[in-house]
């Protein structure tokens, strides 16, 4: 007997290649995106932006699952994902 099945929404839920866009004009360095990223993709760099805020950087976007939590959580509307397979959809 086959005890496992392929999830019916696997295509929808599968990680998609993603580029993370951080808008440095908007970022105020609160650090929420880095703190709550489930995959540790984002990290505070310890450097200051030209506005004097702590800067966030992408450590490894290969690890990104494209969940979009950083995008939703950013209080500045300053971070968003670009799905590289968008045209295919």
């Amino acid at each position: 007997m086959n005890l496992w099945r392929k999830p019916f929404d696997i295509d929808e839920k599968a990680p998609r290649p993603v580029k993370i866009h951080i808008d440095i004009d908007r970022c105020k360095g609160c650090g929420y995106c880095a703190e709550f990223c489930p995959r540790g993709v984002l990290k505070m760099t310890g450097e200051l932006s030209y506005k004097g805020y702590d800067m966030v950087g992408v450590v490894d976007d290969g690890k990104c699952l494209g969940c979009g939590l950083c995008e939703a959580m950013c209080p500045e509307f300053g971070i968003y994902l670009i799905y590289e397979d968008k045209e295919l959809k």
């Binding site: 105020k28 609160c30 209080p75 500045e76 509307f77």
Partner: peptide
Amino acid sequence: IPHIWCAGCGIGP
């Protein structure tokens, strides 16, 4: 934008 709210303010999310 950027808005007037402080860094870490909950109103943005």
